[in-house]
């Protein structure tokens, strides 16, 4: 087991090294000098040079790469060129929006999708099943930003129940922020719920066709009891895998929804960083996301190995 973990950890470290090289190289070749961008049209050349020195942009490429990686290893992600605050602080503040939004959307989509999928499976082939499958197809096809705009038109502009967007900040109270996140979370959750409901339905159907279900029915359980005690729990394994994938999508992929509702999330931070040539922010945030994904894969590998001894043997 230890050998397995060590070999996985080595893979993790190598992947991070390669990722850091790729990210640094790609971002360095993007044209556009951050200092010139910040100073605009009328700046004198020596002013730009002075700012480059101040930002630590002079020095050779390998030198700057080592400075960047060395900083990250000691927990120093650098200072944003434009905001002039530590990148870690910026990311922390943005996670305060992106993380709750992703969790909220995930919760909504799960709460909607699981019962709906289970119900459709129980009614397989009947009109209710067809109706649910049709509705989920529709849900997958609707782009979430379009759905978001419709929500804004109805609930913010017409009914005026909600703000059209924005985020008050957690120090302003809990409910006011939940309210601000509700429409974006619904917009994000609907397409995810549609996907999840379909996965749930097929997983339940798969389980229902297995021998132990027949045994359960034979020992006298009715259909409802079989579904809830046997089919539902066994179907959860593929569903949880999909939920895990959806979560990382929701964290990093909510950028369009963040724009529609002008939420200060992680996606907008990267987008702003790219247009304003705040390279250190882009590099560090992308690296963090890569790290998060690789770490999750690593943990999942370990968890599988714990659950299934066959995976622990070296290939």
């Amino acid at each position: 087991m230890l050998r397995f973990i060590l070999s996985r950890a080595l893979t993790l470290a190598l992947s991070l090294l390669v990722a850091s090289l790729v990210i640094f190289a790609v971002i360095e070749v993007i044209p556009g000098d951050p200092a010139a961008f910040m100073l605009g049209l009328n700046a004198e050349p020596d002013t730009v040079a002075a700012l480059r020195t101040e930002l630590g942009l002079d020095g050779s490429l390998p030198e700057r790469y080592l400075r960047w990686v060395g900083g990250m290893l000691t927990g120093d992600f650098g200072i944003s060129y434009t905001y002039q605050v530590p990148v870690a602080e910026l990311v922390g503040a943005r996670l305060g929006v992106s993380l709750p939004l992703a969790l909220f959307a995930l919760l909504l989509s799960t709460v909607i999708a699981l019962p709906v999928g289970l119900f459709a499976a129980a009614r397989q082939g009947r009109p209710t099943d067809w109706a649910i499958m049709g509705a989920t197809q529709f849900g997958i096809a609707i782009p979430n930003f379009w759905f978001a705009m419709i929500l804004v038109v109805i609930f913010a502009i017409q009914l005026r129940w909600f703000s059209a967007g924005g985020f008050p900040g957690w120090d302003q109270g809990f409910w006011i922020n939940i309210k601000a996140l509700l429409l974006p979370a619904i917009a994000l959750a609907l397409p995810q719920a549609a996907i999840l409901a379909r996965v749930m339905r097929s997983a339940v159907l798969e389980v229902l066709s297995q021998d132990f279900i027949r045994t359960a029915r034979a020992k006298g359980l009715n259909q409802r009891q079989t579904l809830i005690h046997h089919a539902f729990r066994n179907a959860l394994i593929p569903v949880l895998t999909i939920i895990g994938l959806q979560f990382s999508f929701l964290i990093a992929g909510a950028i369009i929804i963040e724009n529609v509702f002008f939420l200060p999330g992680l996606g907008r931070l990267i987008f702003q960083g790219i247009t304003q040539r705040d390279l250190i922010v882009v590099e560090s945030v992308v690296m963090l996301l890569v790290f998060a994904v690789i770490l999750v894969t690593f943990l999942v590998d370990i968890a599988y190995a714990l659950a299934d001894p066959r995976l622990r043997r070296p290939e």
Binding site: M149, V152, V153, A156, I157, R160, F162, S163, A164, G165, G166, N259, V260, F261, F262
Partner: peptide
Amino acid sequence: ISDPAAAFAAMMAGD
């Protein structure tokens, strides 16, 4: 608010 459509919605909603 960088998105023009969001700016429109925010004005209309009174934000």
